[in-house]
Write a protein that binds this DNA or RNA. Structure first.
Lengths: 275, 275
DNA sequence: CCCAGTACTTCCACTGGACGGAAGCGCATG
DNA sequence: CATGCGCTTCCGTCCAGTGGAAGTACTGGG
Protein backbone atom coordinates (compact mmCIF):
# COMPACT_ATOMS: atom_id res chain seq x y z
CA UNK A 1 0.00 0.00 0.00
CA UNK A 2 2.84 2.33 0.77
CA UNK A 3 4.59 3.97 -2.19
CA UNK A 4 3.69 3.77 -5.81
CA UNK A 5 2.14 0.41 -6.51
CA UNK A 6 2.88 -0.16 -10.14
CA UNK A 7 4.38 2.93 -11.73
CA UNK A 8 3.26 2.70 -15.30
CA UNK A 9 4.69 4.48 -18.33
CA UNK A 10 7.18 6.59 -16.43
CA UNK A 11 9.68 4.00 -15.49
CA UNK A 12 12.65 5.19 -13.52
CA UNK A 13 14.73 2.45 -15.03
CA UNK A 14 17.22 1.08 -12.60
CA UNK A 15 15.11 1.05 -9.47
CA UNK A 16 13.64 -2.36 -10.03
CA UNK A 17 15.54 -5.00 -11.98
CA UNK A 18 13.43 -5.54 -15.06
CA UNK A 19 13.18 -2.09 -16.57
CA UNK A 20 10.16 -2.52 -18.82
CA UNK A 21 11.52 -0.19 -21.53
CA UNK A 22 8.61 2.21 -21.83
CA UNK A 23 7.15 2.65 -25.27
CA UNK A 24 7.38 6.36 -25.98
CA UNK A 25 6.06 6.20 -29.50
CA UNK A 26 3.40 8.75 -30.34
CA UNK A 27 -0.08 7.71 -31.34
CA UNK A 28 0.84 8.43 -34.93
CA UNK A 29 3.95 6.27 -34.74
CA UNK A 30 1.86 3.41 -33.38
CA UNK A 31 -0.67 3.77 -36.16
CA UNK A 32 2.13 3.64 -38.70
CA UNK A 33 3.70 0.65 -36.98
CA UNK A 34 0.44 -1.19 -37.59
CA UNK A 35 0.63 -0.50 -41.32
CA UNK A 36 4.28 -1.48 -41.37
CA UNK A 37 3.27 -4.79 -39.87
CA UNK A 38 1.65 -5.61 -43.20
CA UNK A 39 4.50 -4.52 -45.40
CA UNK A 40 7.29 -5.87 -43.22
CA UNK A 41 8.10 -9.36 -44.49
CA UNK A 42 10.09 -8.64 -47.65
CA UNK A 43 9.22 -11.09 -50.39
CA UNK A 44 6.58 -13.13 -48.66
CA UNK A 45 3.17 -11.67 -49.33
CA UNK A 46 1.64 -11.67 -45.88
CA UNK A 47 -1.52 -10.22 -47.26
CA UNK A 48 -3.65 -10.88 -44.22
CA UNK A 49 -2.94 -10.86 -40.50
CA UNK A 50 -4.87 -11.61 -37.34
CA UNK A 51 -5.15 -9.00 -34.63
CA UNK A 52 -2.63 -10.84 -32.49
CA UNK A 53 -0.14 -11.06 -35.34
CA UNK A 54 -0.45 -7.33 -35.96
CA UNK A 55 0.09 -6.65 -32.26
CA UNK A 56 3.23 -8.78 -32.23
CA UNK A 57 4.75 -7.28 -35.36
CA UNK A 58 3.96 -3.75 -34.30
CA UNK A 59 5.16 -4.39 -30.77
CA UNK A 60 1.96 -3.11 -29.22
CA UNK A 61 -0.32 -4.45 -26.47
CA UNK A 62 -3.32 -6.29 -27.78
CA UNK A 63 -5.90 -3.87 -26.47
CA UNK A 64 -4.11 -0.90 -27.94
CA UNK A 65 -3.78 -2.69 -31.25
CA UNK A 66 -7.45 -3.51 -31.15
CA UNK A 67 -8.39 0.10 -30.72
CA UNK A 68 -6.00 1.49 -33.31
CA UNK A 69 -6.83 -1.18 -35.86
CA UNK A 70 -10.47 -0.23 -35.41
CA UNK A 71 -9.53 3.34 -36.30
CA UNK A 72 -7.80 2.19 -39.47
CA UNK A 73 -10.78 0.05 -40.39
CA UNK A 74 -13.26 2.85 -39.87
CA UNK A 75 -11.25 5.04 -42.23
CA UNK A 76 -10.79 2.25 -44.73
CA UNK A 77 -7.04 1.89 -44.47
CA UNK A 78 -7.45 -1.65 -43.25
CA UNK A 79 -10.30 -3.99 -43.88
CA UNK A 80 -11.60 -6.79 -41.75
CA UNK A 81 -12.57 -10.05 -43.38
CA UNK A 82 -15.22 -12.52 -42.27
CA UNK A 83 -12.63 -14.87 -40.83
CA UNK A 84 -11.37 -12.14 -38.53
CA UNK A 85 -8.22 -11.48 -40.52
CA UNK A 86 -7.20 -8.00 -41.53
CA UNK A 87 -5.66 -6.74 -44.74
CA UNK A 88 -4.72 -3.41 -46.26
CA UNK A 89 -7.84 -1.61 -47.43
CA UNK A 90 -8.85 -0.09 -50.72
CA UNK A 91 -8.71 3.42 -49.30
CA UNK A 92 -5.02 3.04 -48.79
CA UNK A 93 -4.63 1.97 -52.40
CA UNK A 94 -6.76 4.87 -53.52
CA UNK A 95 -4.71 7.41 -51.64
CA UNK A 96 -1.45 5.70 -52.51
CA UNK A 97 -1.92 5.83 -56.27
CA UNK A 98 -2.38 9.60 -56.04
CA UNK A 99 1.23 10.01 -54.97
CA UNK A 100 2.61 12.52 -57.47
CA UNK A 101 6.00 11.00 -58.30
CA UNK A 102 4.60 7.57 -59.01
CA UNK A 103 1.45 8.78 -60.73
CA UNK A 104 3.06 11.30 -63.04
CA UNK A 105 5.94 9.13 -64.11
CA UNK A 106 3.70 6.13 -64.61
CA UNK A 107 1.11 8.01 -66.62
CA UNK A 108 3.69 9.49 -68.94
CA UNK A 109 5.81 6.38 -69.25
CA UNK A 110 3.11 3.75 -69.66
CA UNK A 111 2.45 4.16 -73.39
CA UNK A 112 6.16 3.82 -74.12
CA UNK A 113 6.42 0.81 -71.85
CA UNK A 114 3.55 -0.77 -73.72
CA UNK A 115 5.32 -0.20 -77.02
CA UNK A 116 8.44 -1.75 -75.60
CA UNK A 117 6.49 -4.71 -74.32
CA UNK A 118 4.85 -5.16 -77.67
CA UNK A 119 8.04 -5.21 -79.64
CA UNK A 120 9.93 -7.42 -77.20
CA UNK A 121 7.21 -9.54 -75.56
CA UNK A 122 9.33 -9.64 -72.42
CA UNK A 123 9.08 -8.26 -68.88
CA UNK A 124 9.25 -4.48 -68.93
CA UNK A 125 10.22 -2.61 -65.77
CA UNK A 126 10.11 1.00 -64.68
CA UNK A 127 12.01 1.86 -61.51
CA UNK A 128 13.27 4.85 -59.56
CA UNK A 129 16.06 5.29 -57.02
CA UNK A 130 14.70 5.44 -53.49
CA UNK A 131 17.22 5.35 -50.68
CA UNK A 132 19.53 2.42 -51.27
CA UNK A 133 17.09 0.50 -53.46
CA UNK A 134 15.57 0.37 -56.88
CA UNK A 135 11.84 0.87 -56.32
CA UNK A 136 9.70 -0.76 -59.02
CA UNK A 137 6.96 1.57 -60.17
CA UNK A 138 5.61 -0.50 -63.01
CA UNK A 139 5.95 -3.94 -64.48
CA UNK A 140 4.39 -5.31 -67.62
CA UNK A 141 4.61 -9.02 -68.38
CA UNK A 142 3.04 -11.31 -70.88
CA UNK A 143 1.33 -14.60 -70.14
CA UNK A 144 4.41 -16.71 -70.56
CA UNK A 145 7.34 -14.56 -69.46
CA UNK A 146 10.17 -15.83 -67.22
CA UNK A 147 9.34 -16.08 -63.52
CA UNK A 148 10.83 -13.13 -61.64
CA UNK A 149 10.84 -11.75 -58.13
CA UNK A 150 10.25 -8.17 -59.18
CA UNK A 151 6.79 -6.74 -58.85
CA UNK A 152 5.17 -3.34 -58.61
CA UNK A 153 6.10 -1.79 -55.26
CA UNK A 154 9.08 -4.11 -54.78
CA UNK A 155 12.50 -2.92 -53.70
CA UNK A 156 15.51 -4.64 -55.19
CA UNK A 157 19.24 -4.01 -54.81
CA UNK A 158 20.98 -1.54 -57.07
CA UNK A 159 24.01 -3.66 -57.92
CA UNK A 160 22.22 -6.79 -59.09
CA UNK A 161 19.46 -5.43 -61.30
CA UNK A 162 19.56 -3.66 -64.64
CA UNK A 163 17.46 -0.71 -63.56
CA UNK A 164 19.38 -0.53 -60.30
CA UNK A 165 22.76 -0.33 -61.97
CA UNK A 166 21.56 2.37 -64.34
CA UNK A 167 20.15 4.41 -61.48
CA UNK A 168 23.40 4.02 -59.57
CA UNK A 169 25.45 4.96 -62.63
CA UNK A 170 23.79 8.36 -62.83
CA UNK A 171 23.37 8.93 -59.08
CA UNK A 172 25.28 11.65 -57.19
CA UNK A 173 28.78 10.48 -56.30
CA UNK A 174 28.12 10.50 -52.58
CA UNK A 175 25.25 8.05 -53.06
CA UNK A 176 27.52 5.74 -55.05
CA UNK A 177 30.27 6.15 -52.45
CA UNK A 178 27.96 5.27 -49.62
CA UNK A 179 26.34 2.38 -51.45
CA UNK A 180 29.64 0.75 -52.31
CA UNK A 181 30.92 1.26 -48.77
CA UNK A 182 28.68 -1.52 -47.49
CA UNK A 183 29.17 -5.10 -48.52
CA UNK A 184 27.02 -6.09 -51.48
CA UNK A 185 25.07 -9.31 -51.45
CA UNK A 186 26.00 -12.00 -53.97
CA UNK A 187 22.83 -13.65 -55.28
CA UNK A 188 24.35 -15.81 -57.97
CA UNK A 189 27.92 -16.69 -58.94
CA UNK A 190 27.92 -13.97 -61.58
CA UNK A 191 26.72 -11.15 -59.30
CA UNK A 192 29.36 -8.43 -59.30
CA UNK A 193 29.96 -7.37 -55.69
CA UNK A 194 33.49 -6.04 -55.71
CA UNK A 195 33.32 -2.20 -55.35
CA UNK A 196 35.98 -1.42 -57.94
CA UNK A 197 34.42 -3.80 -60.46
CA UNK A 198 31.05 -2.14 -59.89
CA UNK A 199 32.58 1.30 -60.43
CA UNK A 200 34.05 0.13 -63.71
CA UNK A 201 30.64 -1.11 -64.80
CA UNK A 202 29.03 2.19 -63.85
CA UNK A 203 31.52 4.08 -66.01
CA UNK A 204 30.82 1.72 -68.88
CA UNK A 205 27.08 2.26 -68.50
CA UNK A 206 27.53 6.03 -68.56
CA UNK A 207 29.55 5.62 -71.74
CA UNK A 208 27.18 3.29 -73.55
CA UNK A 209 23.95 4.65 -72.15
CA UNK A 210 22.75 1.14 -71.46
CA UNK A 211 23.32 -1.57 -68.83
CA UNK A 212 23.67 -5.25 -69.64
CA UNK A 213 23.12 -7.75 -66.86
CA UNK A 214 23.20 -11.49 -67.05
CA UNK A 215 22.41 -14.06 -64.37
CA UNK A 216 23.13 -11.76 -61.45
CA UNK A 217 19.85 -11.75 -59.58
CA UNK A 218 17.67 -14.53 -60.94
CA UNK A 219 19.00 -17.66 -62.58
CA UNK A 220 18.15 -17.89 -66.26
CA UNK A 221 17.33 -14.24 -66.80
CA UNK A 222 19.23 -11.30 -68.24
CA UNK A 223 18.33 -7.67 -68.64
CA UNK A 224 18.96 -4.52 -70.60
CA UNK A 225 18.29 -1.18 -68.95
CA UNK A 226 18.44 2.46 -69.98
CA UNK A 227 18.13 5.81 -68.17
CA UNK A 228 15.16 8.17 -68.29
CA UNK A 229 15.90 11.89 -67.93
CA UNK A 230 13.65 14.76 -67.01
CA UNK A 231 13.56 18.30 -68.35
CA UNK A 232 16.70 19.20 -66.40
CA UNK A 233 18.68 16.33 -67.84
CA UNK A 234 18.80 14.51 -64.53
CA UNK A 235 18.22 10.76 -64.57
CA UNK A 236 14.99 10.18 -62.67
CA UNK A 237 14.12 6.62 -63.58
CA UNK A 238 15.16 3.60 -65.58
CA UNK A 239 13.43 1.19 -67.97
CA UNK A 240 14.47 -2.36 -68.52
CA UNK A 241 13.61 -5.47 -70.46
CA UNK A 242 14.24 -8.81 -68.78
CA UNK A 243 14.64 -11.88 -70.95
CA UNK A 244 15.56 -15.50 -70.71
CA UNK A 245 19.37 -15.65 -70.91
CA UNK A 246 20.71 -16.36 -74.39
CA UNK A 247 24.22 -16.54 -75.79
CA UNK A 248 24.12 -13.31 -77.71
CA UNK A 249 22.75 -9.87 -77.03
CA UNK A 250 19.98 -8.96 -79.44
CA UNK A 251 20.93 -5.54 -80.88
CA UNK A 252 17.32 -4.81 -81.83
CA UNK A 253 16.23 -5.32 -78.25
CA UNK A 254 18.93 -2.97 -77.10
CA UNK A 255 17.69 -0.41 -79.54
CA UNK A 256 14.10 -0.88 -78.38
CA UNK A 257 15.05 -0.23 -74.74
CA UNK A 258 16.98 2.88 -75.77
CA UNK A 259 14.05 4.15 -77.80
CA UNK A 260 11.60 3.61 -74.97
CA UNK A 261 13.84 5.46 -72.51
CA UNK A 262 14.33 8.29 -74.97
CA UNK A 263 10.61 8.46 -75.66
CA UNK A 264 9.76 8.81 -71.98
CA UNK A 265 12.56 11.35 -71.49
CA UNK A 266 11.25 13.43 -74.36
CA UNK A 267 7.73 13.23 -72.94
CA UNK A 268 9.16 14.49 -69.64
CA UNK A 269 10.56 17.51 -71.43
CA UNK A 270 14.13 16.39 -71.97
CA UNK A 271 15.89 17.71 -75.05
CA UNK A 272 19.14 15.97 -75.92
CA UNK A 273 22.01 18.18 -74.80
CA UNK A 274 24.07 19.25 -77.83
CA UNK A 275 27.79 18.53 -77.66
CA UNK B 1 -12.29 35.51 -12.30
CA UNK B 2 -15.43 33.74 -11.18
CA UNK B 3 -16.39 30.55 -12.95
CA UNK B 4 -14.56 28.75 -15.66
CA UNK B 5 -12.49 31.23 -17.63
CA UNK B 6 -12.28 29.69 -21.07
CA UNK B 7 -13.59 26.18 -21.01
CA UNK B 8 -11.73 24.44 -23.75
CA UNK B 9 -12.61 21.19 -25.50
CA UNK B 10 -15.48 20.28 -23.21
CA UNK B 11 -17.97 22.88 -24.12
CA UNK B 12 -21.40 22.73 -22.57
CA UNK B 13 -22.88 24.16 -25.71
CA UNK B 14 -25.73 26.50 -24.99
CA UNK B 15 -24.32 28.39 -22.02
CA UNK B 16 -22.58 31.05 -24.03
CA UNK B 17 -23.84 32.15 -27.39
CA UNK B 18 -21.13 31.02 -29.76
CA UNK B 19 -20.88 27.32 -29.03
CA UNK B 20 -17.48 26.54 -30.52
CA UNK B 21 -18.49 23.01 -31.62
CA UNK B 22 -15.74 20.99 -30.00
CA UNK B 23 -13.72 18.78 -32.22
CA UNK B 24 -13.99 15.33 -30.71
CA UNK B 25 -12.09 13.54 -33.44
CA UNK B 26 -9.45 11.11 -32.25
CA UNK B 27 -5.80 11.58 -33.10
CA UNK B 28 -6.19 8.89 -35.73
CA UNK B 29 -9.16 10.63 -37.30
CA UNK B 30 -7.17 13.86 -37.47
CA UNK B 31 -4.26 12.11 -39.11
CA UNK B 32 -6.60 10.63 -41.68
CA UNK B 33 -8.26 13.99 -42.23
CA UNK B 34 -4.87 15.31 -43.23
CA UNK B 35 -4.49 12.63 -45.90
CA UNK B 36 -8.02 13.23 -47.07
CA UNK B 37 -7.11 16.85 -47.56
CA UNK B 38 -4.93 15.75 -50.47
CA UNK B 39 -7.47 13.47 -52.07
CA UNK B 40 -10.48 15.68 -51.51
CA UNK B 41 -10.93 17.80 -54.63
CA UNK B 42 -12.43 15.31 -57.08
CA UNK B 43 -11.03 15.84 -60.54
CA UNK B 44 -8.58 18.61 -59.83
CA UNK B 45 -5.20 17.16 -59.02
CA UNK B 46 -4.22 19.17 -55.98
CA UNK B 47 -0.92 17.42 -55.87
CA UNK B 48 0.73 19.76 -53.41
CA UNK B 49 -0.56 21.82 -50.52
CA UNK B 50 0.86 24.31 -48.06
CA UNK B 51 0.58 23.72 -44.35
CA UNK B 52 -2.15 26.30 -44.06
CA UNK B 53 -4.12 24.75 -46.90
CA UNK B 54 -3.93 21.37 -45.23
CA UNK B 55 -5.09 22.86 -41.95
CA UNK B 56 -8.06 24.46 -43.65
CA UNK B 57 -9.15 21.41 -45.58
CA UNK B 58 -8.73 19.13 -42.59
CA UNK B 59 -10.45 21.60 -40.30
CA UNK B 60 -7.61 21.59 -37.79
CA UNK B 61 -5.75 24.35 -35.94
CA UNK B 62 -2.49 25.27 -37.58
CA UNK B 63 -0.27 24.14 -34.73
CA UNK B 64 -1.95 20.77 -34.53
CA UNK B 65 -1.65 20.36 -38.27
CA UNK B 66 1.98 21.28 -38.06
CA UNK B 67 2.66 18.58 -35.50
CA UNK B 68 0.65 15.86 -37.21
CA UNK B 69 2.00 16.65 -40.65
CA UNK B 70 5.49 16.30 -39.17
CA UNK B 71 4.53 12.80 -38.00
CA UNK B 72 3.39 11.89 -41.50
CA UNK B 73 6.57 13.28 -42.99
CA UNK B 74 8.79 11.38 -40.59
CA UNK B 75 7.07 8.13 -41.57
CA UNK B 76 7.17 8.99 -45.24
CA UNK B 77 3.44 9.25 -45.85
CA UNK B 78 3.83 12.89 -46.80
CA UNK B 79 6.88 14.59 -48.17
CA UNK B 80 7.96 18.16 -47.82
CA UNK B 81 9.35 19.96 -50.83
CA UNK B 82 11.92 22.74 -50.90
CA UNK B 83 9.26 25.37 -51.47
CA UNK B 84 7.51 24.37 -48.26
CA UNK B 85 4.69 22.55 -50.01
CA UNK B 86 3.64 19.07 -49.03
CA UNK B 87 2.58 16.15 -51.16
CA UNK B 88 1.72 12.50 -50.66
CA UNK B 89 4.89 10.51 -50.09
CA UNK B 90 6.34 7.43 -51.74
CA UNK B 91 5.81 5.35 -48.63
CA UNK B 92 2.10 5.76 -49.03
CA UNK B 93 2.33 4.59 -52.61
CA UNK B 94 4.46 1.67 -51.56
CA UNK B 95 2.03 0.54 -48.91
CA UNK B 96 -0.97 1.28 -51.10
CA UNK B 97 0.07 -0.92 -53.99
CA UNK B 98 0.33 -3.86 -51.60
CA UNK B 99 -3.43 -3.76 -51.07
CA UNK B 100 -4.51 -7.32 -51.89
CA UNK B 101 -7.66 -6.69 -53.95
CA UNK B 102 -6.01 -4.22 -56.24
CA UNK B 103 -2.70 -6.03 -56.47
CA UNK B 104 -4.05 -9.49 -57.18
CA UNK B 105 -6.63 -8.43 -59.69
CA UNK B 106 -4.23 -6.14 -61.47
CA UNK B 107 -1.44 -8.70 -61.66
CA UNK B 108 -3.70 -11.34 -63.08
CA UNK B 109 -5.62 -9.07 -65.40
CA UNK B 110 -2.78 -7.00 -66.82
CA UNK B 111 -1.58 -9.42 -69.51
CA UNK B 112 -5.11 -9.72 -70.85
CA UNK B 113 -5.58 -5.98 -70.74
CA UNK B 114 -2.38 -5.60 -72.72
CA UNK B 115 -3.66 -8.00 -75.34
CA UNK B 116 -6.88 -6.08 -75.54
CA UNK B 117 -5.03 -2.82 -75.86
CA UNK B 118 -2.88 -4.26 -78.59
CA UNK B 119 -5.75 -5.48 -80.71
CA UNK B 120 -7.88 -2.37 -80.26
CA UNK B 121 -5.34 0.45 -79.71
CA UNK B 122 -7.91 2.17 -77.53
CA UNK B 123 -8.25 3.04 -73.85
CA UNK B 124 -8.57 -0.12 -71.80
CA UNK B 125 -10.09 0.07 -68.33
CA UNK B 126 -10.31 -2.28 -65.38
CA UNK B 127 -12.70 -1.29 -62.60
CA UNK B 128 -14.38 -2.72 -59.54
CA UNK B 129 -17.54 -1.79 -57.65
CA UNK B 130 -16.73 0.14 -54.50
CA UNK B 131 -19.63 1.68 -52.64
CA UNK B 132 -21.70 3.64 -55.14
CA UNK B 133 -18.89 4.11 -57.62
CA UNK B 134 -16.85 2.37 -60.22
CA UNK B 135 -13.28 2.46 -58.95
CA UNK B 136 -10.69 2.39 -61.71
CA UNK B 137 -7.90 -0.05 -60.92
CA UNK B 138 -6.05 0.12 -64.19
CA UNK B 139 -6.00 2.11 -67.38
CA UNK B 140 -3.94 1.56 -70.47
CA UNK B 141 -3.86 4.17 -73.20
CA UNK B 142 -1.81 4.73 -76.28
CA UNK B 143 -0.12 7.94 -77.27
CA UNK B 144 -3.00 9.28 -79.26
CA UNK B 145 -6.15 7.97 -77.60
CA UNK B 146 -9.21 10.14 -76.93
CA UNK B 147 -8.96 12.47 -73.95
CA UNK B 148 -10.87 11.05 -70.99
CA UNK B 149 -11.47 11.89 -67.36
CA UNK B 150 -10.88 8.38 -66.10
CA UNK B 151 -7.56 7.54 -64.52
CA UNK B 152 -6.15 4.97 -62.15
CA UNK B 153 -7.65 5.54 -58.72
CA UNK B 154 -10.55 7.57 -60.08
CA UNK B 155 -14.15 7.03 -59.06
CA UNK B 156 -16.83 7.46 -61.68
CA UNK B 157 -20.61 6.96 -61.57
CA UNK B 158 -22.09 3.55 -62.27
CA UNK B 159 -24.85 4.67 -64.60
CA UNK B 160 -22.79 6.69 -67.04
CA UNK B 161 -19.79 4.46 -67.67
CA UNK B 162 -19.44 1.11 -69.39
CA UNK B 163 -17.67 -0.61 -66.53
CA UNK B 164 -20.06 0.98 -64.07
CA UNK B 165 -23.15 -0.29 -65.81
CA UNK B 166 -21.72 -3.79 -66.06
CA UNK B 167 -20.85 -3.79 -62.36
CA UNK B 168 -24.34 -2.56 -61.53
CA UNK B 169 -25.93 -5.16 -63.78
CA UNK B 170 -24.42 -7.99 -61.78
CA UNK B 171 -24.59 -6.32 -58.36
CA UNK B 172 -26.89 -7.59 -55.55
CA UNK B 173 -30.43 -6.31 -56.02
CA UNK B 174 -30.33 -4.20 -52.87
CA UNK B 175 -27.32 -2.31 -54.22
CA UNK B 176 -29.16 -1.63 -57.48
CA UNK B 177 -32.28 -0.66 -55.55
CA UNK B 178 -30.40 1.78 -53.41
CA UNK B 179 -28.41 3.20 -56.29
CA UNK B 180 -31.45 3.89 -58.39
CA UNK B 181 -33.28 5.40 -55.43
CA UNK B 182 -31.15 8.52 -55.63
CA UNK B 183 -31.31 10.89 -58.56
CA UNK B 184 -28.71 10.15 -61.19
CA UNK B 185 -26.66 12.92 -62.69
CA UNK B 186 -27.04 13.69 -66.39
CA UNK B 187 -23.65 14.46 -67.91
CA UNK B 188 -24.67 14.64 -71.55
CA UNK B 189 -27.99 14.62 -73.37
CA UNK B 190 -27.70 10.90 -73.96
CA UNK B 191 -26.99 9.92 -70.35
CA UNK B 192 -29.75 7.55 -69.21
CA UNK B 193 -30.91 8.68 -65.78
CA UNK B 194 -34.47 7.40 -65.58
CA UNK B 195 -34.51 4.43 -63.09
CA UNK B 196 -36.76 2.19 -65.17
CA UNK B 197 -34.76 2.81 -68.31
CA UNK B 198 -31.58 1.94 -66.41
CA UNK B 199 -33.15 -1.29 -65.13
CA UNK B 200 -34.05 -2.23 -68.66
CA UNK B 201 -30.47 -1.66 -69.75
CA UNK B 202 -29.14 -3.75 -66.87
CA UNK B 203 -31.38 -6.67 -67.93
CA UNK B 204 -30.14 -6.30 -71.48
CA UNK B 205 -26.52 -6.33 -70.31
CA UNK B 206 -27.11 -9.50 -68.30
CA UNK B 207 -28.63 -11.06 -71.40
CA UNK B 208 -25.91 -10.04 -73.84
CA UNK B 209 -22.98 -10.20 -71.44
CA UNK B 210 -21.78 -6.84 -72.70
CA UNK B 211 -22.61 -3.17 -72.18
CA UNK B 212 -22.67 -0.60 -74.97
CA UNK B 213 -22.45 3.04 -74.01
CA UNK B 214 -22.35 6.03 -76.27
CA UNK B 215 -21.84 9.69 -75.44
CA UNK B 216 -23.11 9.42 -71.89
CA UNK B 217 -20.15 10.63 -69.86
CA UNK B 218 -17.66 12.26 -72.22
CA UNK B 219 -18.59 13.84 -75.54
CA UNK B 220 -17.18 12.00 -78.52
CA UNK B 221 -16.47 8.73 -76.76
CA UNK B 222 -18.23 5.39 -76.56
CA UNK B 223 -17.46 2.23 -74.71
CA UNK B 224 -17.90 -1.51 -74.64
CA UNK B 225 -17.64 -3.31 -71.30
CA UNK B 226 -17.80 -6.90 -70.10
CA UNK B 227 -17.92 -8.62 -66.69
CA UNK B 228 -15.05 -10.48 -65.01
CA UNK B 229 -16.01 -13.37 -62.73
CA UNK B 230 -14.04 -15.12 -60.02
CA UNK B 231 -13.89 -18.80 -59.09
CA UNK B 232 -17.34 -18.58 -57.47
CA UNK B 233 -18.95 -17.13 -60.57
CA UNK B 234 -19.49 -13.77 -58.93
CA UNK B 235 -18.76 -10.67 -61.00
CA UNK B 236 -15.83 -8.96 -59.30
CA UNK B 237 -14.68 -6.49 -61.91
CA UNK B 238 -15.29 -5.18 -65.41
CA UNK B 239 -13.10 -4.45 -68.44
CA UNK B 240 -13.88 -1.88 -71.06
CA UNK B 241 -12.61 -0.37 -74.23
CA UNK B 242 -13.33 3.29 -74.85
CA UNK B 243 -13.27 4.57 -78.40
CA UNK B 244 -14.06 7.64 -80.38
CA UNK B 245 -17.78 7.46 -81.20
CA UNK B 246 -18.54 6.00 -84.62
CA UNK B 247 -21.78 5.20 -86.38
CA UNK B 248 -21.55 1.45 -86.10
CA UNK B 249 -20.44 -0.92 -83.40
CA UNK B 250 -17.39 -2.90 -84.45
CA UNK B 251 -18.25 -6.56 -83.83
CA UNK B 252 -14.60 -7.52 -83.66
CA UNK B 253 -14.02 -5.02 -80.89
CA UNK B 254 -16.97 -6.44 -79.01
CA UNK B 255 -15.48 -9.89 -79.37
CA UNK B 256 -12.10 -8.65 -78.16
CA UNK B 257 -13.60 -7.19 -74.98
CA UNK B 258 -15.50 -10.42 -74.34
CA UNK B 259 -12.35 -12.46 -74.84
CA UNK B 260 -10.33 -10.30 -72.48
CA UNK B 261 -13.01 -10.56 -69.79
CA UNK B 262 -13.22 -14.31 -70.24
CA UNK B 263 -9.46 -14.65 -70.15
CA UNK B 264 -9.21 -12.82 -66.85
CA UNK B 265 -12.16 -14.77 -65.45
CA UNK B 266 -10.52 -18.04 -66.39
CA UNK B 267 -7.24 -16.89 -64.83
CA UNK B 268 -9.20 -16.14 -61.67
CA UNK B 269 -10.44 -19.71 -61.61
CA UNK B 270 -13.85 -19.28 -63.20
CA UNK B 271 -15.17 -22.19 -65.20
CA UNK B 272 -18.19 -21.42 -67.33
CA UNK B 273 -21.23 -22.79 -65.50
CA UNK B 274 -23.01 -25.32 -67.67
CA UNK B 275 -26.46 -23.89 -68.07
C1' DC C 1 -20.27 -32.69 -21.30
C1' DC C 2 -16.80 -30.07 -19.17
C1' DC C 3 -12.71 -27.76 -18.99
C1' DA C 4 -8.54 -25.74 -20.78
C1' DG C 5 -6.69 -23.04 -24.33
C1' DT C 6 -6.65 -19.49 -27.73
C1' DA C 7 -8.22 -15.22 -29.71
C1' DC C 8 -10.80 -11.37 -29.56
C1' DT C 9 -13.54 -7.67 -27.21
C1' DT C 10 -14.86 -4.56 -23.58
C1' DC C 11 -14.08 -1.96 -19.37
C1' DC C 12 -12.22 1.66 -16.71
C1' DA C 13 -8.95 4.30 -13.51
C1' DC C 14 -4.78 6.72 -14.24
C1' DT C 15 -1.71 9.95 -16.24
C1' DG C 16 1.47 11.80 -19.52
C1' DG C 17 1.15 13.06 -24.28
C1' DA C 18 -1.57 15.67 -27.29
C1' DC C 19 -3.67 20.11 -27.68
C1' DG C 20 -3.83 24.80 -29.40
C1' DG C 21 -3.41 29.82 -28.10
C1' DA C 22 0.08 32.82 -28.22
C1' DA C 23 4.46 34.53 -29.06
C1' DG C 24 8.48 34.35 -32.05
C1' DC C 25 10.61 34.10 -36.54
C1' DG C 26 11.54 34.83 -41.54
C1' DC C 27 10.43 36.83 -45.62
C1' DA C 28 8.15 39.41 -49.06
C1' DT C 29 5.69 43.66 -50.17
C1' DG C 30 4.13 48.51 -49.95
C1' DC D 1 10.66 50.60 -41.78
C1' DA D 2 6.13 49.03 -40.96
C1' DT D 3 2.77 45.55 -42.11
C1' DG D 4 1.13 41.16 -43.13
C1' DC D 5 1.37 36.42 -44.02
C1' DG D 6 2.77 31.81 -43.17
C1' DC D 7 5.49 28.77 -40.65
C1' DT D 8 7.65 27.22 -36.30
C1' DT D 9 8.23 26.81 -31.40
C1' DC D 10 6.76 27.06 -26.67
C1' DC D 11 4.32 25.57 -22.72
C1' DG D 12 0.43 25.07 -19.13
C1' DT D 13 -3.76 22.52 -19.12
C1' DC D 14 -6.46 18.46 -19.07
C1' DC D 15 -8.75 14.71 -21.23
C1' DA D 16 -7.88 11.15 -24.76
C1' DG D 17 -5.25 7.34 -25.07
C1' DT D 18 -3.45 3.63 -22.53
C1' DG D 19 -3.12 -1.23 -21.23
C1' DG D 20 -4.00 -4.58 -17.39
C1' DA D 21 -7.61 -7.25 -16.33
C1' DA D 22 -11.93 -9.27 -16.71
C1' DG D 23 -15.40 -10.97 -19.97
C1' DT D 24 -16.91 -13.38 -24.14
C1' DA D 25 -16.74 -16.63 -27.90
C1' DC D 26 -14.94 -20.56 -30.17
C1' DT D 27 -12.51 -24.84 -30.59
C1' DG D 28 -10.86 -29.19 -29.51
C1' DG D 29 -9.23 -32.82 -26.36
C1' DG D 30 -10.30 -35.96 -22.72
Amino acid sequence: MSGKPVQKRTNDDGVDGHSAAVDDRSVAARLFAILDAFAAPAGATSLTLTLTAIAQRAGLPLSTTHRLVAEWVSWGGLSKHENGQYSLGMKLWEVGVQTPTARNLRTIALPYLEDLYETTREHVHLAILDGRDALYLEKLSGHHAVRLISRVGARLPLHSTGVGLVLLAYAPTDVVQEYLATSLQRFLPRTVTEPEAVRKRLAEIRLLGIARMSEEMTAGSSSLAAPIRDRTGQVVAAVSVVTRTTDTVDPEQEQAVRLAAQGVSRALGYRRAQQ
